[in-house]
Design a protein around this nucleic acid. Sequence first.
DNA 1: TGTACATCAGTGAACGCGCGTTCACTGATGTAC
DNA 2: TGTACATCAGTGAACGCGCGTTCACTGATGTAC
Lengths: 209, 209
Amino acid sequence: MSAVGRGTYRHGDLRGTLLSAGIEMARDGGPDAVVLREATRRAGVSPNAAYRHFADRRALLLAVSATAQGLAADSMEAAIASVPDSGDPKNDARQELRAVGLGYLAFAREEPGLFRTAFSVPDDLGNAESPTKAGEGGRTPFQLLAGVLDHLVEVGAMPEERRRGAELLAWSSVHGLGMLMIDGPLRGLTPEMIEEASERLVDMVARGL
Amino acid sequence: MSAVGRGTYRHGDLRGTLLSAGIEMARDGGPDAVVLREATRRAGVSPNAAYRHFADRRALLLAVSATAQGLAADSMEAAIASVPDSGDPKNDARQELRAVGLGYLAFAREEPGLFRTAFSVPDDLGNAESPTKAGEGGRTPFQLLAGVLDHLVEVGAMPEERRRGAELLAWSSVHGLGMLMIDGPLRGLTPEMIEEASERLVDMVARGL
DNA sequence: TGTACATCAGTGAACGCGCGTTCACTGATGTAC
DNA sequence: TGTACATCAGTGAACGCGCGTTCACTGATGTAC
């Protein structure tokens, strides 16, 4: 039984524990609430112990952000899975696109802190397919979106010449609604209004793409 | 010459000076960079002097946010003004809608710190028409958007039954792109890519609304 | 198998920092008589 | 007009707080002989 096999030396799995603590803090208060000292406190460990596992606070935050993106992927994947098979491939593909957007927005609504931590932490699009950001299904939010767009093209529900860069357009729309309703001037919307706006927004995207 | 007439007692106009300092800090670092003590330092005044003019840090931040929204309105208004008169009212109205979106995105690109301060600070939609958020033209970003949507309906370029709540849909889309490219995973996009994405996004919205 | 040794995860203490906010105050100004 | 007075914008000092990060260290563990 090697040291690696049983997790980390001594503590068991301090890295994982700090990450979990970070997720909980992000859940409650977004990225700014991810505090390195607090994470060590929750892990029952001295503050500097964190530096064995993360170069600095930013490294912890990026790890938390990646994990949060994985959770967003789970929400999106669940929404896709719930789309009933209508027998009409074009319709199915469109419903999947809607589902991806609605899953993203559901995550924003249900886990605003994690949502902001996932998608408001500066990162590069080049890392959008990093496995650290994948959900249980093994795919990242970006990959899920790209997948349904590919599917739309495959079944002929979207002209191929519009495919390139379509991720950005679809993503922007749902992301904007998410941010405005969490953090911005749409904060005061009732759940019904949010629900309606979400539905109409994904419809608009499906039409406009 | 009354005390009010010449601004504030003694300092001249400490409130205005603190507000300006806040704007500069927001410009450089977004809402988190709006630091009450630093504002007083820049004004050459003791830290607690700020409390004569703002109840607390949050009050200062909200004032800065409102001012930043006014600057966003200026950018949008400039974009609307630059739309050439084509003689075709429907086309003009559509171009105005595009312009509102592009002006918003230009502001995000040119003043990312102010953009985040304007639109990422929790507020209520009920205050979206407060005069403190108006630009030089006297209208807030929300009012400008609502105006071009009304215009679209007037000239028959948009069915009336789609008008209600259309602000939210249009706003979400451009806001999302703005946030993703400033603060999120689209940070690394080149100016050309941003330009293209912006154009395509406002087209998508115009089509999808 | 038993023992000396190397490893390295976590410790304890301290650093410098800057923040928001409160207290009792001062003294230049405008004003009432 | 001259003087006493009230106002209140800004002062000076201090509060408690918590942060990220660095230092030299310790001691339980796995391992080599």
